[in-house]
Structures are given as structure tokens and as C-alpha cells.
């Protein structure tokens, strides 16, 4: 199971992380070593073992449906990278084709 630079490029693409060619070359063997080291995990547990996602067996923790104080628009926008007309200004969302 050798992880190639192409594999890493695809995963970085899924994760929306721009990687340089140098990073791809460096990460592929590093990540391959880590994945090889953790692969034994798949051989430990049989199909009869229930997977555990969480330390606490909690389900459906609800709060009362009452209005509580929250951030004002000014507070929410104060640390935004860009603001316009009291709103977050996002970069272009439609492509040429879109």
C-alpha cells in the first residue's frame, strides 16, 4: 500500500488544501510510514465488536427551546476577513461555466 504523490494530491484536493510540489514529495513518504504503522488496527477486532464513537453513551441531549442571548451582527462580523453591507463578503462563488 504505497501512498503516491498523486494519492496525496487527490486527498489534499478533497480537503481543500493547496500543496506545493515540494510538499507533495515530502508528505507522500511520511504519510505512507504513518499509515503502514496504523494498518495493524484493521486486524485486531472481529466483526462481533461494536464500534465505539464516543466515551459517553449519550443520546439526544436537548436544551429547552427558549431564546438566549447570542452575538450581535456587529460582533459576528468584527473578525471577518471581508465585510460588505453588514454581511460576510465571500470571494466569487460562480465559475465562468457556472
Amino acid at each position: 500500500m504505497a501512498l503516491t504523490t498523486a494519492d496525496v494530491a487527490r486527498l489534499a484536493d478533497l480537503a481543500r488544501i493547496e500543496l506545493s510540489a515540494e510538499e507533495l514529495e515530502r508528505f507522500a513518504p511520511e504519510l505512507d510510514i504513518v499509515l503502514a504503522a496504523v494498518a495493524s488496527v484493521s486486524e485486531v477486532a472481529g466483526s462481533d465488536v461494536t464500534p465505539m464513537s464516543h466515551a459517553l453513551a449519550l443520546t439526544n441531549v436537548f436544551r429547552d427551546d427558549v431564546v438566549r442571548p447570542s452575538l450581535t451582527p456587529a460582533q459576528a462580523l468584527a473578525m471577518a476577513p471581508a465585510v460588505e453591507d453588514d454581511r460576510f463578503r465571500a470571494p466569487r462563488i460562480l465559475t465562468e461555466e457556472g
Partner: peptide, 17 residues
């Protein structure tokens, strides 16, 4: 995601979100 808070890089008006 560079939208609501934190760093934003390369937003030159031509690049997509």
C-alpha cells in the same frame, strides 16, 4: 474556510471561493 473569521489569502477579486 476563509469566510467568516481567520485568515484569507489570495482574494484578488478573480479567484473563486
Amino acid at each position: 474556510d476563509a469566510i467568516r473569521y481567520g485568515r484569507r489569502v489570495g482574494d484578488d477579486g478573480t479567484r473563486s471561493t
